[in-house]
Amino acid sequence: MKLGILINEGPYNHQASDSAYQFTKAALEKGHEIFRVFFYNDGVNNATRYSIPPQDDRNITQQWTELAEKHDLDLVVCVAAAQRRGIIDEGEQERNGKDGNNIAPGFRISGLGQLIEAGIQADRLVTFGD
């Protein structure tokens, strides 16, 4: 089955991203295709490479980066939601005159159309949120 994943809550504060990660990993292991993972609302905060969780805890962003590398996942962060919350890539940094960027490897910033497209193209769109 072709699946789209939507994550609407930030890391650590909420289990949504953890559950989505476990679900995505399990789906891939069962041979399903992940069309796209889309990050919206506070979910965009999953995409910062600047988080430093305690060493005895999981690193949620790094888990996504590694899973994306292993399975060539498309991790997409909503640009409007990301701009509000200070999640920035190099392009946004230049466009908005910011002094840095913080997006983690494996993630890309794009528009909400990518979410709608996931809804259209995937057999199921599975939401993880509140």
Partner: peptide, 19 residues
């Protein structure tokens, strides 16, 4: 919370996809 506003933003973008 921001959910209502950001939901409306998805609706407006999504409208272009003629679903």
């Amino acid at each position: 919370t921001i959910y209502a506003l950001e939901s409306l933003e998805v609706v407006l973008i999504g409208a272009a996809f003629e679903q």
